[in-house]
Design a protein around this nucleic acid. Structure first.
Lengths: 159, 159
DNA sequence: GGTGAAACTTCTAATAA
DNA sequence: TTATTAGAAGTTTCACC
């Protein structure tokens, strides 16, 4: 399945970059006892291979006034409407992720909103999409995000 | 709710950094017709205020052989076990996010695994945690992630 | 593959406005 | 507060292992 062979050096480079993308390559080089040029070449290679898709800032949405998170399960009248509904959902900026799923729901998405009232508006937007039969919401009372490093280390152990 | 006043300049700086954290400050400065020093000061201010929590690489987990995503709803015997179970769940590296929720489930989490077989193992790990009554899984057949920029722009429109 | 150094670019902190 | 600027620091390329 995985076509790309990343060695221990690549792994350690990713390890240093994954929670701070602005770590200087010279720092990485010093720590790994290689040259900064090598770090540069390897990072570029991983970017070209698509292993590194990009980098992003993590913003504190709570501080920005958006502290409400909910998951919304969507039931469709008919599975053939999946693509249409998915497109509509992805046009709502407060929907951060959407999945087509097996199981109970046809589509399953995560929303981020200001507060309960705002979330209600967002959910109503979803409810109003043609083809949506009904929705079922789960409100997050507490979120805990797992360290990306841990998953990465585990992945690398068996590559 | 939002204590921090970010102006149009801050907004545009974030806009440039959010999809590529390594954009040179000089590029940002040129585009916004300000000096690189100003960009630097403003970014630092947003970091100090906690608006910018950090930066992260986006890796292609499919390319790394982890193409299976599922959401797992967890029913507990008793709500008092929430904290304990949550801690246990967060020790499983394949669980990427966990939420305490209202509604159907007590805890709700997202897992990333290699394949169906591996996912089964991960779900069994969850099932085996003391206090877990039963779980219900939704397998993702297709994932679509919304552009972070869109949410950010929308947020900034009403700040 | 990797290195090391040169050439170039960017960052950052002190200073000035 | 914000802008400028000069010296420090980082990145990138390339000739050579």
């Amino acid at each position: 399945m995985s076509k790309f062979r990343l060695d221990e050096i690549d792994h350690q480079i990713l390890d240093m970059l994954i929670d701070n993308t602005r770590v200087p390559f010279t720092d990485i080089a010093k720590k790994l006892l290689i040259s900064a040029g090598t770090v540069h070449v390897r990072v570029k290679k991983m970017e070209d291979a698509g292993i590194i898709q990009g980098s992003s800032l993590t913003l504190d949405y709570e501080k920005l006034g958006y502290s409400f998170i909910a998951y919304v399960g969507i039931f469709l009248h008919n599975t053939s409407q999946t693509k249409f509904v998915l497109e509509r959902i992805n046009n709502i900026p407060f929907v951060t992720v959407a999945h087509v799923t097996t199981g109970k729901f046809n589509i399953f998405c995560k929303i981020r909103a200001k507060n309960t009232r705002h979330a209600k508006e967002v959910i109503f937007l979803i409810d109003d999409i043609e083809g949506v039969y009904r929705t079922e919401s789960m409100i997050s009372l507490e979120e805990s995000i797992n360290d990306k490093k841990r998953l990465m280390h585990t992945i690398f152990k068996d590559l």
